[in-house]
């Protein structure tokens, strides 16, 4: 179990400023915001996302499968002379691999997005924390690891309050 301090801010610029300063002194765990903030992405250096790579592989893979199917059906399994066109009419065969490739790239990207975000996760202990629901509406919530010593923890609370936090809560969270 990890003990966290959750600090609520009502202003985005104060929140970013507080996160930046808190990062230098404490271990930042997470930030919950009602919309994406570029500055927060810079502060929280997450592992590189593989979403685009997986989309690329999925898209190219599906396009290859679709073309393979067209080639197999039109040139090998059911060779049919349609107005003297070549059996492997590649220009006419391009649309299906293109469209299905994009569709599958999107599906793979979405799946990868869910994996990277740990979703779906319908129940989370954070949802039970009073005031957390405002993190998806009009509040900016910063989560930092609570220092182990009580003195340090009081200092951290004091620091957050001075940085402009409207409310600070202490919670316990699964380290998962």
């Amino acid at each position: 179990m990890t003990k966290l301090l959750l600090a609520e801010f009502s202003d985005s610029s104060r929140f970013v400023d507080a996160a930046r300063r808190a990062g230098a002194r404490y271990r930042l765990v997470d930030a919950f915001t009602p919309f994406p903030l570029e500055a927060i992405n810079e502060i929280f250096e997450h592992r590189g996302s593989r979403i685009r790579l997986s989309m690329f592989i999925g898209g190219i893979g599906m396009a290859a499968v679709a073309y393979g199917l067209e080639y197999f059906s039109a040139a090998i399994n059911y060779p049919y002379n349609s107005g003297g066109r070549p059996l492997n009419s590649w220009p006419a065969f391009m649309l299906v691999p293109f469209a299905t490739g994009i569709l599958v790239a999107a599906i793979v990207g979405f799946t990868r997005f869910l994996i990277e975000c740990g979703l779906p996760r319908l129940s989370d202990p954070l949802f039970a924390v009073e005031g957390f629901e405002r993190g998806s509406q009009d509040c900016f919530v910063l989560a930092i690891a609570r220092p182990e010593r009580d003195d340090d923890s009081h200092q951290a609370i004091d620091f957050l309050r001075r940085a402009g936090a409207a409310a600070i809560r202490e919670i316990e969270q699964d380290s998962s």
């Binding site: 930030a31 919950f32 869910l114 779906p120 993190g135 998806s136």
Partner: peptide, 10 residues
């Protein structure tokens, strides 16, 4: 789907 709006999510 359990969206929390965390930095990672965004």
């Amino acid at each position: 789907l359990g969206w929390r709006g965390s930095a990672r999510h965004w």
